[in-house]
Design a protein around this nucleic acid. Structure first.
Lengths: 248, 248
DNA sequence: TAGTGGTCTAGACCACCCC
DNA sequence: GGGTGGTCTAGACCACTAC
């Protein structure tokens, strides 16, 4: 008698079929090699004796873990793993280069808008004053990686809207306005890809993302920019160096 | 003639039905108030004229965003939002208290193991030497929040296995071994809840998580611990302060 | 025991890519 | 056109909770 092993009893780990399926799929990924093609979803369903729905659930999880990528009309392929980006006050460009990746940045939008109450508070300007909103698509080696939306106070940086796109934003701030970044508060959380995100990143709606929100200050502690970005959760991880608050 | 609006053309944002459903569900959440109950999934499917599968997909997304919680045999409830935790070299306990939450920590496991090559390298001990592995379940106000697995070199901290659980680990390290943390490298990425995670956290398998990996060093730059934790992505966000690498 | 959420199925149809 | 992934459906059965 006695419930022996595998009883899946209460408070124990239950393993759904879609989760167990991942083991089999992972070995297919290993066989395929980086970027190699996997069998189609219908073929996988037949091979493992499950429904296509269950296969897709397992594939979606593996995709979220960065182990494979799916391309709509094309197929499923072994994944490329995650890129590590350092959380620091440096440019995206420098950062990607240090990983041997070729970074590009497309300016999707540069518009002047009127500061809403929340943005006004964050940028320390009066409500309704002019704010420059920049929207960029960051890519590495041609693959879209992140969408970044920045807001800067035009009252502090008159004419900035004419100067973006030329060179690095932080370079422009220093050369034309004598402003240098001192510190920033960066928040990280999970999020899901919106339809707009998915369209730009070649993602699926609802894909797991990392949302970062950066509030940057200059060396005089005045707010300089407020940035919200979403990074593909299957392609990125972030690393930060923490120092002791009580240094001895 | 002429595709007017709503044509959902190429390269534009397509909005799947499950995503659009979220708007309707969000207003139900608002009506319910924090912690309030929502109608059952079958009732929602009928009300919105979609299949239960589609309702569940939308609910799963809202859950990942922290807007609601589901309890197995019980029901679906309006969510509690996210807690912000600072990335710093301080204890979980201090951190939660500063948010007015009552933190508890259950020691699930404290075992001595033999260092695998990767752990040995991280802790700067020889392969095969003794390592203490601690596994904790962190809760706030009674709700499970995170699972934390730490590893410390017993060769540097003899007898440590007898002293854990009494008080804070960092306190013990200081009082008995004269060791104080100097800095740490912390990595953050998304992950999915394993069956074991889900069982401990009262989560669903595959739920979105934040995985942190911390490599801590003492004031002499010697490695002290290596910690891997998973936090519920629907309950947590992290914030870090970044400082300029060129302080001029 | 009745109701709730959790898993799985088989099949339909659409959108996209490539030949 | 034919294949691939993306979305949605209707329904079955299981596991858990509350009564």
């Amino acid at each position: 008698m006695a419930d022996i092993l595998g009883d899946n009893g209460r408070k124990t780990a239950r393993t759904p079929k879609h989760w167990a399926l991942k083991d089999g799929l992972v070995s297919l990924v290993a066989d395929a090699g980086p970027g190699g093609p996997l069998p189609g979803e219908r073929a996988l369903a037949e091979r493992f004796g499950v429904s296509r729905t269950t296969v897709r659930k397992a594939l979606t999880e593996l995709m979220a873990e960065g182990r494979l990528t799916r391309v709509h009309g094309s197929g499923t392929f072994a994944g490329a793993g995650k890129v590590t980006q350092r959380l620091q006050l440096s440019s995206y460009t420098e950062d990607m280069r240090s990983h041997g990746l070729n970074p590009t940045s497309a300016l999707l939008e540069a518009t002047v808008e009127i500061a809403e109450p929340d943005v006004a508070a964050l940028l320390a300007v009066s409500e309704g004053s002019a704010v420059l909103r920049l929207r960029r698509l960051r890519s590495a080696d041609g693959e879209p990686m992140a969408i970044e939306t920045s807001r800067l106070p035009l009252s502090r940086f008159p004419g900035l809207e004419e100067r973006v796109g030329d060179t690095s934003l932080y370079g422009v701030l220093w050369e034309h306005y004598g402003v240098q970044l001192g510190h920033a508060e960066e928040t990280i959380e999970t999020a899901l890809a919106t339809p707009a995100d998915a369209a730009l990143l070649g993602n699926e709606v609802g894909a797991v993302m990392l949302r970062l929100s950066r509030h940057s200050f200059d060396t005089d502690n005045r707010p300089v920019e407020w940035v919200r970005s979403v990074y593909r959760g299957d392609r990125y991880k972030f690393v930060a160096t923490l120092v002791s608050p009580r240094p001895q």
